[in-house]
Simulated assay, not measured.
Amino acid sequence: MEIQFLTIQDQELIISALVYGIIFLVLLTTGLLLFFHYSRRKIIQKELEKAALRLEHQKTILQATIATQEEERKRIAQDLHDAISARLNVVSLTANLLLDDDGLNEDQKASLEHILGITTTTLESSRKIAHDLLPPILDKFGLKVALEELFEDFTKSKQLQIKHSIDDLDFLSKTNELHVFRIVQELINNATRHGDASRLNIELQKETESRFTLTCKDNGNGFDVSKIKKKSGIGLQNIKSRTAILECTLHAESEIDKGSIFTIQSKRP
């Protein structure tokens, strides 16, 4: 049996073929890895673009919805002022004129005074509702004065104490001032109606020329934070919606029977 040995030239050819084969496999594998990497990046980028478009679309719808709400508030406030209040003023004036008639007996005077009392109370209620729907002081004097008047209105009953510190946010547009005003209004309503709070501490701080922090702390009943994350009431949902439009973060801290703290802060640029 004759054994044939490979020549040095044949061995070099085999080694060269193996080396080239390995290089080819490495290059092929690298190419495939790079292809899948960049393909994955493109897919992720497209998904992020789609998500951004969805968020922008949702924000547009949200802004349109809230704008419609504000227009409806304005219409109702004007109807209260122009129609109902005007007619009640006529009733009040007529009742006062009739009371000046010396020919009325005591029962008739008592009835007119009763009508006048109801009319006066209804007028005050309609003015308050109209004011809550469309605070004229906000447009005339700005957010700081409007909030101070809001706190004064809430504390007139002596059942609620509001300690506050309000900075002038001169960088906000009129629309964004209204959003902040509505948020504070809703926070107070939630604290008093649902939390039975008797004391509130509200701070609105100007952090920079474009950022602010709003903090509302109450001594109410508190709530389970995990539950409101799953399902929010209308009031809190309104706060979340306006916070999103302002491009702020909303953080809630609360414990049962230990009150609540809401912090709304502008996102860092």
Rank of each mutant, 00 (worst) to 15 (best):
E2Q: 13
I3S: 05
L6D: 06
T7A: 06
I8C: 01
Q9V: 02
D10M: 11
D10E: 14
D10T: 12
Q11C: 10
E12N: 08
G21P: 00
L25H: 09
L27F: 14
T29L: 09
G31V: 03
L33K: 11
F36T: 10
S39T: 02
R40H: 15
R40N: 14
K42Q: 12
I44V: 13
I44M: 13
Q45I: 08
K46T: 04
R54P: 07
Q58D: 05
T68H: 09
E70M: 05
E72A: 08
R73M: 03
R73S: 04
Q78I: 07
D79N: 11
H81A: 13
D82E: 13
D82N: 13
S85M: 12
V90A: 10
S92C: 09
L93H: 14
L98N: 02
D100K: 07
L112T: 04
L112M: 01
E113C: 05
L116W: 03
T121Q: 15
E124I: 03
S125T: 02
R127T: 03
R127V: 09
K128A: 02
I129T: 00
A130F: 03
H131R: 12
P135D: 00
I137S: 03
L138G: 08
D139W: 06
L143R: 07
K144D: 14
V145E: 00
A146T: 01
A146Q: 03
L150H: 10
F151P: 15
D153S: 11
T155L: 05
K156V: 13
S157P: 01
K158S: 08
I162C: 01
I162T: 07
S165E: 12
D167N: 02
L169T: 03
D170K: 11
K174C: 02
L178C: 02
V180T: 07
F181E: 00
I183N: 10
Q185N: 07
E186Y: 00
N189Q: 14
A191K: 12
A191F: 07
H194Y: 06
A197R: 11
N201V: 01
E203F: 15
T208K: 02
R211F: 01
T213D: 02
L214F: 01
K217E: 12
G220Q: 11
G220H: 08
G222L: 05
V225F: 04
G233D: 04
G233F: 04
I245Q: 11
L246Q: 04
E247K: 10
L250R: 09
L250F: 00
E253K: 13
E253G: 06
I256F: 15
D257R: 14
D257P: 00
G259E: 01
S260T: 10
P269N: 08
P269A: 03
